[in-house]
Amino acid sequence: MADEPSGDGRREEIKKEGIRDDVAGSEPASSAGPEVCEAVVAKLEMVADESAPKEPVPVEARAETTAKAEEAELVRAAYEHPLAIRITHWVNAISLFVMITSGLRIFRAFPSFGPKIPEKILLDIPKSLTLGGWLGGALQWHFTFMWFFAASGIFYLLFQIFSGHYRTMLFMPRDISGVWPMARHYFLFGPKPPAMGQYNPLQKLAYTSTVGLGALSLLTGMVMYKPTQFSWLAFLFGGFHLTRIWHFAAMCGFLAFIPGHLIMVALHGWANFFSMFSGWKREPEYQE
């Protein structure tokens, strides 16, 4: 990379973009990422460069400039997602897909929350959206992937708690005030609030909620699977009947979250998406 910083118009453009970062999804595309960064770093170095004497440079000073030129090659990056988070994210994504599609097939066997007699069909779920072929097949998928779902969920929680990593995503009372400006930005084209950390308040709210939804689906699932063995839990959820409704409601929560999550990921480009595989995010929006 012999891209010498040369004080041309391009650098000015980049500088502007760095300040005027207010358009949704305006993050630099991944191919532009490293250059942008080099240029920004180079710009910082320029201050020193400009004050440098114009006459022939002494040997020591020349060495210094070389070092600076090397520094100019550096990329800003953050290790956002530890391995445990990435593994549980993808195991959970696969499990949720299986649990929802097979769950819908199970629900199809009795698509109601009322009595069996008379049965009022609440929803006619198209077979094509479901997994398992029939009730028995769907139950097999459900009863297999519930273990992956539960194991990854519990492991995730333990990791978050004991590593302290939860601080990046846990929604706290202090985040409340930031939710509306962020929602206004996403949904009503309001100005973009400055990025303060890995996640904005709306993201924290969404991610924290999904952890709650996961816990709700797991606990209500346990009640439906073994209502007698977990009778105390059944009691907590208001009995077998209500538990089935809670379980369905938790799935609805996931169905509300997932499309929004996928759209946001699509809007935020490759570097952001790829960070959930590699852990490293190139050129994060935030400063520290």
Partner: peptide, 9 residues
């Protein structure tokens, strides 16, 4: 945020 060479990243 860390700063590192592109190759290293």
């Amino acid at each position: 945020i860390t700063r590192l060479e592109d190759k290293e990243l």
